[in-house]
Design a protein around this nucleic acid. Structure first.
Length: 274
DNA sequence: TTTACTGTTCACCA
DNA sequence: GTGGTGAACAGTAA
């Protein structure tokens, strides 16, 4: 569900709210979502810690604590955070509650329970969360068309699976991968080895454009979602191809098709993308 | 009742 | 080693 833009928006929304707040106590409603360390130790280590800053790496949200520890959160498919007064009734599927020193709570809820939390002590190497395997951030200086071409230009994998592989590039998921391929006119099943230099250039540009546009669009719509007043944040209106099977291509009018690539639904325009 | 699902990891096979 | 497929995780909704 959440890809890079949604995590970035979450980070920006919670940053001013959570910074300098102290975690008075943590309640682990469902211990199995704590990937490392176990829930009980996790709770002991975050207790009485002040939140220093928020960060993001790919689809991971990072919360830095005063003792140098980092709380890492991955929302996976259906995870969400909620900040609310402690008297607010619990949403269904609330698995973890951070009680804060301002009388509010930061709650993690996740219908499908795929989301995970990790806590790394200061200077502890992250061999747990998978974040160390991530490729460059799309907005990092090292992320360029040349980077993509060097890394993927000699491979046989389909471009769709390559874009979803977080070790090539961090943060792209199924929805925005389809949007990027639509904007660049590249078929999702095109082998990466067949792409021309100008296509790599177009891809790198489209990735940055589409992700930054999505972050901008999210700013307003996600406020309600994150504040708990809206159950959904998806707005498929702004998507050009994802989820539009059998509808007209917004560019040429042809019928959008849906196929499976890399085990995922992939939407594309057979006329615009080859 | 059945099927699909926006993330990730792993086993298995070509 | 590369890369595709399917399963698993668990719950909901169409």
């Amino acid at each position: 569900m959440p890809e890079l833009p949604e995590i970035e928006t979450t980070k920006r929304f919670f940053e001013p709210i959570l910074c300098q707040r102290q975690i008075v106590k943590m309640t682990a409603v469902r211990p199995e979502i704590f990937a490392y360390p176990a829930a009980e130790i996790f709770g002991e280590r975050v207790q009485a810690q002040q939140i220093q800053s928020l960060g993001r790496r790919g689809k991971y949200l990072l919360i830095s604590l005063a003792d140098g520890a980092t709380l890492i959160l991955h929302l996976r498919m259906t995870g969400r955070l909620l900040y609310c007064p402690s008297a607010t009734p619990l949403m269904p599927h609330t698995h973890c509650i951070f009680h804060l020193d301002d009388g509010n709570e930061l709650r993690f809820s996740d219908t499908r329970r795929f989301g995970r939390l990790w806590l790394l002590a200061a200077n502890e190497e992250d061999t747990f969360s998978g974040a160390q395997k991530l490729g460059p951030e799309p907005f990092d200086a090292v992320f360029t068309a040349n980077h993509l071409q060097q890394k993927l230009g000699q491979r046989r994998a389909t471009i769709k699976s390559a874009l979803l592989d977080q070790s090539n590039l961090a943060g792209l998921g199924n929805i925005y991968a389809d949007e990027v391929l639509f904007q660049t006119g590249i078929h999702p099943q095109c082998p990466t080895g067949e792409l021309q230099e100008e296509q790599w250039l177009a891809l790198a540009t489209a990735i940055q454009e589409i992700l930054s546009q999505a972050i901008e669009d999210n700013q307003s719509r996600m406020q309600d979602y994150l504040a708990g007043s809206s159950g959904k944040y998806n707005d498929n209106q702004r998507l050009n191809v994802y989820g539009r099977e059998k509808l007209e291509c917004k560019s040429c009018g042809a019928e959008i098709q849906r196929i499976q690539v890399a085990g995922r639904s992939s939407f594309f325009c057979p006329a615009c993308q080859c």
